[in-house]
């Protein structure tokens, strides 16, 4: 289960990150971040944040590139990237729906919202619909307990949600894919 609030970048690496890093502007931006941290090994998580913002998700070749640049063992980079739920090693859908599963949201029925979207998309929390349109995620309390249950639709926090309302919204995404 991955949790995030920020909307993912919709641009997955074209043809993967395997291509010529030098020809890809995003690599330059990543390079700038690493340089700003003086290629310090302990900046790994910061660099992973940047990489995910730039590329949408963390492909293995991208992780290898980071490992080599920061001189961190590959297994450690992979270990860190998979320890934190924020990082995704798989591409996310065009749209994301993040359902807060904090206590306040839970007691106000967030689980039912999750079930409704799981049923609608035929996916489990943490998965993306086969057509790549919608990713369903749950979050560990986004701190919007006052307006529980909270659902983050493409990065916008919405409060006091109901299963029906979220289903309607997601149906729109699934319908035309835009």
């Amino acid at each position: 289960m991955s949790s995030t609030v920020a909307a993912p970048s919709k641009t997955a690496p074209a043809g993967g990150a395997k291509g010529q890093p030098s020809g890809d502007n995003r690599y330059k931006m990543l390079e700038a971040t690493m340089k700003r941290h003086q290629y310090a090994a302990d900046s790994l998580i910061e660099v992973l944040h940047t990489a995910q913002e730039l590329f949408g998700f963390l492909e293995v070749d991208l992780l290898l590139h980071i490992a080599h640049s920061l001189r961190v063992p590959p297994s450690r980079v992979y270990g860190v990237a998979t320890f934190y739920h924020f990082f995704s090693l798989k591409p996310k859908g065009d749209h994301t729906v993040v359902i807060c599963m904090g206590t306040a949201c839970y007691v106000k029925g967030a689980a039912q919202v999750v079930s409704a979207i799981e049923a609608l998309g035929g996916i489990k929390a943490g998965e993306t619909t086969p057509d790549g349109k919608v990713s369903l995620m749950t979050a560990r309390c986004i701190g919007a307990c006052g307006i529980a249950p909270a659902v983050v639709l493409d990065g916008n926090i919405t409060g006091k949600q109901t299963p029906a309302a979220v289903v309607d919204h997601v149906k729109g995404w699934l319908g035309n894919g835009s």
Partner: peptide, 12 residues
């Protein structure tokens, strides 16, 4: 790193 679900004091 206010992680307790149901707590949002620090965020605020």
């Amino acid at each position: 790193d206010e992680g307790d679900p149901g707590a949002f004091m620090d965020r605020s």
